[in-house]
Nucleic acid binder design. Structure first.
Lengths: 212, 212
DNA sequence: CAGCATCCGCTTTGATACTG
DNA sequence: CAGTATCAAAGCGGATGCTG
């Protein structure tokens, strides 16, 4: 990116992460952890492959991302956030918070990946019974299952399935977005087609009080 | 901006504020309040005038900025953030926080406007003696004076001069940045050319404990 | 002078094809 | 799998001109 040439902290930050696609690459690495090139490309539908390569090089140069060449047998490189890159979580979190209202409309032809709900889920959900034994909830929406777990009073989300989830909810991205963000109460989500199996109390324990 | 076409809160947010210059326009309105077109242009050195007009129109359409036509005698329009626009403060704040380390190098040919220190100052300074009577500090650096005031235990900053400031500090943007961010202790800043007149205790009351 | 709109050359991006 | 190469289209930057 061309530098703004301004002695201003915000402008300097944008000199590094203000390019198109750059913050979405950071989003991918925050939501999924270390990724291969192909994982990134799959999580960033629409990006041109040369742009992905360019951006990764710039981010590496800026000290935001590190490229980790795996040993010969594996023969695949891993990209991960450096400490400096992890510090962008606060920026992305606020961006996500600001962007959540736009999710009300639902995806109208938009691409969707389930792990895009990881960051908003961690922002919106809370463990309201931290003294009770931890619970695991599996969310099935879009291309892959999502796991939501209570850990030490906070809520962690990640891609993956569980064999012994306390509850399993299944629904369209639109309804799941409404549920996780607190826009929809559980009953309303069910009325809109959400399927909820297992221990509903485990679910209610972490859902935000709606309407948010 | 072309939409990313992703059903993701961060991507949706960037669809609106991810264009080049857009967040810097928001920075201007956050740091200075309502601005005329010409004020914005002056606070955004390097922007092409047509881009400023374009961005303002997009931001207005997105409900982030409102254009207020002043009554006939004044004949000048004012741009201000809407409530939705004000909510971007959290995003800009995190961006500023992340960008502050880049200020260590000093402006190497970068443009500078004193009001660019308003947001970082409010982020970094705290009133450590809220029970005592409020103080006012004038900071002279760059193109215009800056006022820093304690209000109800917090610290507000804005453009402007005071007739009766408790303290007046004068220095280069580089040294002032170091002082405000806590990278430089007051003594070190003075050794680097900072001039400090008046009640030094008023200053120490709000400065971050260095090294930050 | 404030607030743009137009034009033009350059850079960045997007889509696709191709390679080690 | 992990990119590079190519090229058209879009966006940006700078200059200038227009209008109340």
């Amino acid at each position: 990116m061309r530098s703004y040439g301004q002695y201003c902290a915000a402008a300097k930050a944008l000199d590094v992460i203000g390019d198109r696609w750059t913050l979405l690459i950071v989003r991918e690495l925050l939501a999924r952890g270390a990724c291969r090139y192909t994982d990134l490309r799959d999580g960033l539908p629409g990006i041109a492959t040369n742009l992905l390569a360019d951006r990764l090089r710039q981010l590496e140069e800026a000290g935001v991302v590190s490229r980790e060449e795996a040993p010969p047998p594996i023969a695949t490189a891993l990209f991960r956030l450096t400490l400096r890159g992890e510090e962008l979580r606060a920026v992305i979190d606020e961006l996500v918070r600001w962007g959540i209202p736009f999710m009300v409309d639902g995806p109208n032809g938009d691409a969707f990946r389930a792990h895009w709900f990881v960051l908003p889920a961690e922002l919106a959900l809370t463990d309201r019974a931290p003294q009770r034994p931890p619970v695991t909830i599996e969310v099935r929406t879009g291309d892959a299952p999502l796991l939501i777990e209570t850990v030490d009073g906070s809520v962690r989300a990640r891609q993956g399935a569980a064999e012994d989830a306390d509850a399993v909810v299944t629904g369209t991205p639109h309804v799941v977005a409404g549920l996780l963000s607190g826009r929809l109460a559980l009953d309303d989500a069910v009325a809109l087609g959400l399927d909820c199996e297992g221990d509903v109390r485990a679910l209610r324990r972490v859902l935000p009080r709606s309407p948010a």
